[in-house]
Amino acid sequence: MKATVSDIARNCGLSTATVDRVLNNRPGASAANRQRVMEAAKQLGYLPVVDQVTLPSRPAHLEFFLPIGSNAFMMDLARHIEDYAARLPLVASCRIHNLAGISPGALQAAIENLSLRANGVGVIAIDHPRTRNILREIVEAGIRLVTLVSDVPGAPRSAYVGIDNRVAGRTAALLMGRFLSGRPGHLAMVVGSRSYRGHEEREMGFRSVLSEEFPNLTVTSAVEINDEPDISYTATMQALHNEPELLGIYCVGAGRSGVAKALLDARPQKKPVFICHDLTRATRGYLVDDLLDVVIDQNARLIAEQSVIRLLGSIASSAPYLTRKFIEPRLIFKENVPVQ
């Protein structure tokens, strides 16, 4: 027999009104009382649990702010969030906002459309003082927050859902060095946007391992393309022209299609090793066509599911932060491309 609000009230020695306020995330209960209520609810099995994350007692309204644009990974992420949320009874509604760019102004304009009934917000945003202030105001309004894909640690988010981007960059450098087997030479780097903390961390990790383990490899071109394939194409064509024997290309964020098109059009005598992130329909094709050597995939489906679960968990929890847990990236080669 399932526990009731009265059972929880008796267990923790508080009124049913206080228990009801806590379970439904309404103001009027102290932090200490919230902790007592949630602990009693957990002991009595009142709250559902998924992946060891305690969920709220009532359905919640979730909203996500994503700079989708023409980015295939972002499109996949948004689709997986909607699909997973639709299958969870504890999600009353799930709304995706397509940001008009990555600037703080774009986020501010989108936040104006945030529903008054929203309980939790997931966001992909750059690490900027204005962004941090926007996110702080969301939390101060009593809404729980998680960051996705690229963290904003200065914001009062309950959790970050994504890979360890510095480790991802270090992995890319290790793969590049192993692929090239000690050959000395030059590399090109295509950086999405250093405004994203995740892209900055990947670049840092990549350069660190080159310096530590492969000093024979030098990055001679590092162009920030703001995730624009046309700029990526031009930058890659220029790098191939300047370095006819370019050994490798690392694409830190989006812009993969621009690199692939440049490789097809330039037809270098020996194709550089090409490493990028995110398994999409396009990168699947690049892998099987031998344009691309390896994808470091952050798993859009898993990030989507965990972002929904962690938002629900943060709504149920009295603690400001949930336990940190990174998504494990996958290394995808042409021989192990998973079924869609």
Rank of each mutant, 00 (worst) to 15 (best):
A300G: 12
I296S: 02
K42I: 07
S307Y: 08
G285K: 12
P244E: 15
D151K: 05
S181T: 07
L114V: 09
A86D: 14
I102G: 06
V161W: 03
E200K: 11
L14V: 09
V219A: 08
R324D: 15
K2H: 10
A155S: 15
S211Y: 05
P104K: 15
A239P: 12
E200I: 00
A125L: 06
T171M: 14
L175V: 08
A9F: 02
I231W: 00
T4I: 04
V259F: 00
I332R: 09
V37K: 10
E245H: 13
P320D: 00
Q35A: 15
Q298I: 06
L287N: 12
G258I: 02
A85W: 09
R284D: 06
V295W: 08
R10W: 04
L264T: 05
G248I: 01
F214N: 10
A3T: 08
L291V: 15
N226H: 12
A188W: 02
G182K: 03
Q306M: 13
R10L: 08
V49M: 10
D76H: 08
D230A: 12
D20I: 05
Q238V: 09
H277E: 09
P229F: 11
G258P: 02
S93M: 02
Y46S: 06
I134H: 11
M38C: 12
Q43S: 11
I143V: 15
R132T: 15
F73D: 04
L174C: 01
L217P: 02
V219T: 11
K334H: 13
V5P: 06
T323G: 10
V294E: 03
N25P: 01
S103Y: 00
A60D: 03
Y160I: 01
V209Q: 02
G285C: 05
E228R: 07
D297P: 04
I327A: 11
P272A: 12
L44H: 07
V53E: 13
L62T: 14
F274A: 12
T4M: 06
K334M: 01
S193K: 10
I309L: 10
L114N: 06
G105F: 01
A32G: 05
Q340R: 03
S314H: 13
L44T: 03
F333E: 01
A266Y: 14
G28P: 12
I231N: 03
V152I: 15
V308K: 04
L264F: 03
Q298G: 08
P215K: 10
E82R: 11
E328A: 13
D297G: 05
L47F: 05
R130T: 11
L180M: 03
R281P: 01
T220N: 06
S211D: 13
L292G: 03
V53A: 09
S307T: 13
C276V: 00
L88M: 10
E63G: 04
L107V: 13
N299D: 15
T218H: 12
S257M: 11
G45W: 05
P272L: 09
S318F: 07
A109T: 12
G162H: 08
H97Q: 05
